[in-house]
Simulated scan of single mutants.
Amino acid sequence: MTLVLNHLTEGPATAPPLLLGPSLGTSYALWDQVAPELSIGHRVIRWDLPGHGGSPAELIGPGATVGDLAGLVLALADSLGVERFAYAGVSLGGAVGLHLAVHHPERVSSLAVICSSAHFNGAKAWEERAATVRAEGLAKLADGADGRWFTPGFTVPRLVRDHRDADPGAYAACCDALAAFDLRDRLGGIGVPTLLIAGREDPATPPAHLREIADAVPGSTLTELPGASHLAPAERPEAVLTALRAHFDGGARRGMAVRREVLGDAHVDRAQGRQTPFTARFQDFISRYAWGEIWTDETLSRRERSMITMTALVAHGHYEELAMHVRAARRNGLTPDEIGAVLLQTAVYCGVPAANSAFAAAQRVLAEEDGATG
């Protein structure tokens, strides 16, 4: 039986796959506050490094490279029937993502590199750490994990415990991989959409490391998170989630564009301006599903969708929404006479009182438009 990396899969099996890579010393629990939300629209697959979490230590040995780890990730994807995937990784997990984008671009659809680097300050410090861990184990190193990983006063006990429980030999082999890693001369060849996320308080891979990648990768984007150290998905999960959604969720981007085209910038700007943490997921839902999937389906024209939408709104008595979609219908090419014909049809199938209220709402909108035109 072939050994593969331990992993956790979340989300619909038919959704676009998204692989999440961990930092050295952590398990896939690093993504606990982010992965469940990402799995709403993706098939999320988060994995453990060899000797970390539930992954077998024998998957890696002395002198390992980031390329070896990338090979294990590809073997995992193959075992799950995943040919092409989006990828996000933290620190060493981010280095794996860079390697994949450089050496296996046909497998990676888009990339996010979080609190990572195209090099990790040379080989010496990592060679020394590997030797220390092989000789003394991980207990002493784990005692200082909070200072390397988080801003003062913050901790995630589960991740510190994972660090302490990791296999020393596999951990040291991962240090070997970091010691040998340097992709700076290959960054210009990365052609997939790339997002860089830096923690402003990160002592291990400060923002300058991410900026170096952003400057070299064509068309890439850099986001710096205040109040975040090295393990940003654990310390600032909401900010990381927002950035990853915006980067990976093409449906949301398409949906927002269509939403603006149909409803107008003024309306969408007002809706966005009223958004709160409580309503953010609902606004995202509207953009991704209503506007990003339904309204972008070319089976029906936008004119036809406007007529159907107005009818449904009359049927359910949503006259404030109806007014908004009367304006949208005008943008979609319907004349006032055609809008009137739709509302007259609702008088037969939805009832005269409903149509009466609908005509009143539509008349106000059309009068406002006529006044603005005049």
Rank of each mutant, 00 (worst) to 15 (best):
A246H: 11
G89V: 05
R186N: 09
A170Y: 01
L72M: 10
P226Q: 01
T223Y: 08
H163N: 11
V113H: 03
V240Y: 05
L366E: 04
D182M: 08
F150P: 00
M324L: 14
E10G: 02
A88E: 08
R288W: 00
A95V: 01
L24K: 06
D249F: 04
H209L: 13
L300R: 13
V34Y: 01
Y171E: 06
F248D: 04
A77E: 07
A358R: 07
D165V: 02
A243L: 05
R260K: 11
A29H: 13
A290W: 02
V352A: 12
G219Y: 02
A252C: 11
S357F: 05
G191C: 09
L138Y: 12
A246P: 03
H318E: 12
A204L: 15
G81W: 06
A204M: 15
P336W: 03
A173N: 02
G251T: 07
T276M: 06
H209K: 12
R43P: 06
A123T: 13
L20D: 10
A75T: 14
L8V: 13
R245W: 00
L210K: 06
G189E: 13
T299E: 08
A180T: 13
L159V: 02
A204Y: 00
T309G: 07
T279S: 15
T223I: 15
L210W: 01
G153Y: 05
T276C: 06
D370R: 15
S110R: 14
V82Q: 05
R254G: 04
L300Q: 07
G147E: 10
L111N: 02
I339G: 08
S109T: 15
A198Q: 03
Y289I: 11
E224Y: 08
D265C: 10
A75V: 10
T65D: 03
L141Q: 12
H230A: 09
G191S: 14
P277D: 01
V326R: 01
A246R: 14
I190H: 09
A75L: 12
E106Q: 15
L38H: 05
Q275S: 15
L343R: 08
A125E: 11
E212A: 15
S55C: 03
D167C: 10
E212F: 12
D68M: 03
L196R: 06
T155A: 13
G54D: 02
L231M: 12
V365D: 09
G21C: 05
L263S: 07
L366S: 10
A15Q: 06
A367H: 13
T155R: 11
S117A: 15
I197P: 05
D284V: 04
R331I: 06
R186S: 14
A145N: 00
Y171A: 02
F285T: 05
T9M: 08
P336G: 04
G255V: 09
F150R: 04
L49W: 01
D215N: 14
V326S: 06
E37W: 03
W291A: 11
P336H: 04
F85N: 04
T151A: 11
T346W: 05
T65K: 07
H42G: 00
D215G: 14
V240R: 04
W295R: 11
